[in-house]
Design a protein around this nucleic acid. Sequence first.
DNA 1: AAGTATAGCCAC
DNA 2: AAACGTGGCTATACTT
Length: 340
Amino acid sequence: MGLPPVKKIKTGFSTGEEVLNILAQTSELPKIILEYREISKLKSTFIDALISKINPRTKRLHTQFNQTVTSTGRLSSSEPNLQNIPIKTELGRKIRRGFIPEDNFIFASFDYSQIDLRVLAHITKDKALRAAFIEGADIHTATAAEVFGLKKEEITNEMRKRAKGINFGIVYGQQSWGLSQQLGITPEEAQNYINQYFEKYSGVKNWITQTTKTAKETGYVTTLTGRIRYLPEINSPNAQIRAFAERTAINTPIQGTSADIIKIAMININKRCKMQDARCRMLIQVHDDLLFEIKKDEIDKHVPMLKSEMENAMKLDIPVVVDVKIGKNWADMERIKSEK
DNA sequence: AAGTATAGCCAC
DNA sequence: AAACGTGGCTATACTT
Ligand SMILES: Nc1nc2c(ncn2[C@H]2C[C@H](O)[C@@H](COP(=O)(O)OP(=O)(O)OP(=O)(O)O)O2)c(=O)[nH]1
Ligand SMILES: [Mn+2]
Ligand SMILES: [Mn+2]
């Protein structure tokens, strides 16, 4: 079409979102394709498919939470997957807005704040990261401020979300060219940023080195509760396969521990707030987030208990914080104060 | 009419 | 996108 091919894949030229975004700078067509892709994806996956799965008796969607699918200890959700309901774009939020509580109930969501980074601080004992959380810092916002050259007060939700990708990317082994693409900077600048990051969080770097070494010796890694993931490929002679396993060795103890924490919280909460409870129902888990529907006049009775159960499920040597939001639908949720 | 492999994209 | 990680679902092309 006269457009320069950007990157290729096995079968030819890629037309993925990131490629199209680059091409969109020179031509109008990629923009239209991207627009079509978004609408098409949302309609097929989240409108048509979800409607067809509504239970006629309960008039609800009933997902399956799979406990033996992931390799890290996370749950997965299927038929339909309710852990990937759109939230990023306005059109996506319109779909999320379709999820509503029963009459006289309200939604309450409890999402762990910066959970993997807190677990990382605990497990690695990194001085700077621990100090940051003890001071009540928000690393995602801080990274956003650094990267965008703004004050923390000027950081929007979207910028913070992008910074999340940067923080997790770097700690889970992203390379300079990957970060350079993500940030739109040169690989040299990206490498500088990564170096600087691990200089600041040298305890994380040391833990990565040590964990990789141990994994190569033992052939497995573990989470804080002792969950094991075997990584036979970590000693592969194939550098690419080996590198994959090395990144997995770093991610699994952290992601898996985050999963352990919320699972313990869910068990403890279930003892106090039964699923069949008429007034306080745990509906969905989204990895570090629990969505409840609660009788409107009993919010104050249940919310502090739920928040506390989640924050104290597993004691870390840094604070564990849960952000609580309340709303009439799953898209328009507003934060409420901590009021302990 | 069923299964398989890709590419692509939604979420955390 | 060749290489932050963990998932599930859809459309499409291609098999059997
Ligand atoms: N490796 C990786 N992990 C991710 C990514 N996005 C989310 N996660 C994991 C790590 C997060 O701590 C965890 C929960 O996701 P959230 O969206 O709730 O982010 P987080 O808790 O870090 O920040 P928050 O304070 O809730 O906004 O899921 C990602 O892009 N890469
Ligand atoms: Mn969170
Ligand atoms: Mn979350």
